[in-house]
C-alpha cells in the first residue's frame, strides 16, 4: 500500500501586492500618467509645476523689483502697468507674489527635507524594534501630536525668536510626528513578513533591514502624507507671517503681505485678495496632488 497524492486540495494564495513600479523611471512615468488622467490631481500637479517655475524664473517673470518703494504710486488699483495693483509703499503686488513663491517653496522644501527622513526613521525604528524603544519614541511623538500644529509652532517661534529660519524650524518640529506615526503603523504590518525573516536569516543587520527592506515599503504612503501636509505647512507659514512671527517685513512673504494689507483692506481689496488667493490655490493644489498621489501609489486602491 502506498500513499498517493492528495494534490490539488490546497487553495492557491493569490497575489496580494502589486508593486507600483518595476524600475524607478518606469514607475515615475506610470505615476505621472495616472496623475494626469484625473482632472483634480492634474490641476494640483500643474499648479505645483507653475509654482516651481515661478520660483526659478522669478526675476524674469516679475515686472518690477519686489522691494522698490515708489510712494507716488502707492495703493494703485490693478491696471496694465501693475497687474495686481500696488501696496501702501507703491511696490508691485504681482512681482511680490512671484518672488514670494521662492519663500514658500523654500519653506516647503526645507520642511520636507527635515520632516520626511526624521519621521520615517523614528517611525520605522519604533515599529521594527517594538518593546520599550517603541514605547519611548511613541510617547514623545504623542506629546508633539497632542498640541495643534499652529499653537505649537507659535510656542516654538516665541521661544526661538521671530524670523523665517525659526519659523521653518518650528514648522518642521511640529510636522514630523504624524509621519512617524504613519511609518510606524506601516512597519508593524511588514515586520513579521517572511521576506523580513528571510533577510534576518541572511545575516542582515537591523539597520540594513530598516533602510533596505522596510523604508521602501513605507515610502509611498509617507510621500503622500508629506504632500498632503504641505498644505498645512503653507497655511502655518502664512499664519506665522501674518502674526509677524515668520518672514520679516521687506520679504515678500504672502502671510506677511496680508498682515500689512489688512489695514487698507476696505478701500484697496487687492492688497489682501491676491496674496490670499495665492495661498488658497497653492495649498489646495497640494491637497489635490496628495489625494491624486495616494490613488496613484496605493496598490490597495486598484
Amino acid at each position: 500500500m502506498t500513499i498517493k497524492s492528495l494534490y490539488g486540495t490546497e487553495n492557491m494564495s493569490n497575489a496580494r501586492v502589486s508593486p507600483w513600479f518595476s524600475g524607478p523611471l518606469k514607475g515615475l512615468g506610470a505615476v505621472l500618467k495616472r496623475l494626469s488622467s484625473d482632472p483634480s490631481s492634474c490641476f494640483g500637479l500643474a499648479v505645483v509645476v507653475i509654482l516651481v517655475l515661478c520660483a526659478i524664473l522669478a526675476p524674469w517673470i516679475a515686472t518690477h523689483d519686489p522691494n522698490l518703494v515708489d510712494l507716488p504710486n502707492a495703493l494703485r488699483s490693478p491696471d496694465a502697468a501693475n497687474w495686481f495693483g500696488t501696496d501702501e509703499l507703491g511696490r508691485d503686488i504681482y512681482s511680490r507674489i512671484v518672488h514670494g513663491t521662492r519663500i514658500t517653496l523654500s519653506i516647503i522644501t526645507l520642511v520636507s527635507i527635515v520632516v520626511g527622513p526624521v519621521g520615517l526613521l523614528v517611525g520605522t525604528t519604533a515599529g521594527y524594534f517594538g518593546g520599550w524603544c517603541d514605547t519611548v519614541m511613541m510617547r514623545i511623538t504623542d506629546i508633539f501630536l497632542s498640541f495643534p500644529g499652529l499653537i505649537l509652532s507659535l510656542a516654538f517661534v516665541a521661544a526661538l525668536g521671530a524670523g523665517l529660519e525659526n519659523a521653518i524650524i518650528a514648522i518642521a518640529l511640529t510636522s514630523w510626528p504624524p509621519i512617524a506615526r504613519l511609518a510606524r503603523a506601516e512597519t508593524l504590518t511588514f515586520r513579521s513578513a517572511d521576506y523580513i525573516s528571510a533577510s534576518r536569516m541572511q545575516g542582515a543587520s537591523s539597520i540594513r533591514i530598516i533602510t533596505k527592506s522596510i523604508m521602501p515599503m513605507c515610502l509611498p504612503s509617507v510621500l503622500v502624507r508629506i504632500t498632503l501636509s504641505m498644505a498645512t505647512v503653507i497655511l502655518t507659514a502664512a499664519g506665522l507671517g501674518f502674526l509677524g512671527l515668520g518672514a520679516q517685513p521687506p520679504l515678500p512673504e504672502w502671510g506677511a503681505m496680508i498682515a500689512t494689507g489688512r489695514r487698507y483692506m476696505l478701500d484697496s481689496w487687492w492688497l489682501v485678495a491676491f496674496p490670499g488667493a495665492a495661498i488658497l490655490i497653492v495649498s489646495l493644489a497640494f491637497n489635490l496632488l496628495g489625494d491624486g498621489l495616494r490613488d496613484a501609489l496605493d496598490p490597495k486602491q486598484r
Partner: peptide
C-alpha cells in the same frame, strides 16, 4: 542554515 518559506508571495520583497 537557511530556510524556504511557505508562501512564495510573501517571502520575496515586492519592491526588490
Amino acid at each position: 542554515v537557511q530556510m524556504v518559506f511557505q508562501d512564495p508571495y510573501g517571502s520575496l520583497h515586492p519592491r526588490q
